[in-house]
């Protein structure tokens, strides 16, 4: 289904990067009202599945742009301000998930869905670990708080969302893509 190079940055990446960012921003804004327990300002975001999906479907650049800009927009709309490390962490989540793009042949195939979920989980681990550990320098927290108070709840929340919603998004996308012949 995907013939383009994973690292290509053309019209498609610009448009879907923007669409992913806007969707992630809007859905994050809507769901920012569910803070994770014991996780400071970390919120439970079903929108993360959308970010991972955009990475998987359109590649690492789209994942990076959607995560970085989308998180910035969602936080700004909610009044959280701008936390560069969390925005970059979200960008990394999308980027790492996007590395699987060239390996996905059929969005309905069980094997491809499992591959996408695994890359998504690795992306979440990398992105949230980056954001949590840099919080030690930005927020002056200790490593225990960074790992237990931020990373673990953020990872678990995002992982659950991805495992549940990403397969549904991929199957729905396969139907839409086949109808449009792309």
């Amino acid at each position: 289904m995907n013939n383009s190079s994973a690292w290509e940055f053309g019209t498609r990446q610009v448009v879907y990067g923007a669409i992913g960012a806007a969707l992630y921003g809007v859905l994050s804004w809507v769901t920012n009202i569910f803070p994770l327990p014991a996780a400071g300002n970390v919120t439970f975001r079903p929108a993360v599945a959308v970010l991972i999906f955009f990475g998987v479907a359109y590649g690492p650049w789209v994942g990076l742009l959607a995560g970085f800009i989308g998180n910035t927009l969602g936080d700004a709309l909610s009044g959280w301000g701008f936390y560069w490390n969390w925005s970059l962490g979200n960008g990394l989540m999308g980027l790492v998930a996007g590395l699987v793009m060239s390996q996905i042949k059929d969005f309905r195939a069980q094997g491809d869905i499992i591959k996408a979920v695994i890359y998504g989980l690795v992306g979440i681990a990398v992105g949230m670990l980056f954001a949590s550990l840099t919080e030690m320098f930005v927020g002056g927290i200790d490593i225990n708080t960074a790992l237990v108070g931020y990373f673990v709840p953020a990872f678990i929340g995002n992982a659950i969302v991805t495992v549940v919603l990403l397969p549904i998004l991929m199957i729905a996308f396969a139907a839409v893509a086949s109808r449009r012949g792309r």
Binding site: G17, A18, A21, A22, V26, V30
Partner: peptide, 18 residues
């Protein structure tokens, strides 16, 4: 710049769609 421009433009559209 175009990505940022489009993202800002799509925000209200997707909020309306939602």
């Amino acid at each position: 710049s175009f990505t940022m421009d489009l993202a800002f433009r799509f925000l209200p559209t997707f909020a309306r769609d939602f």
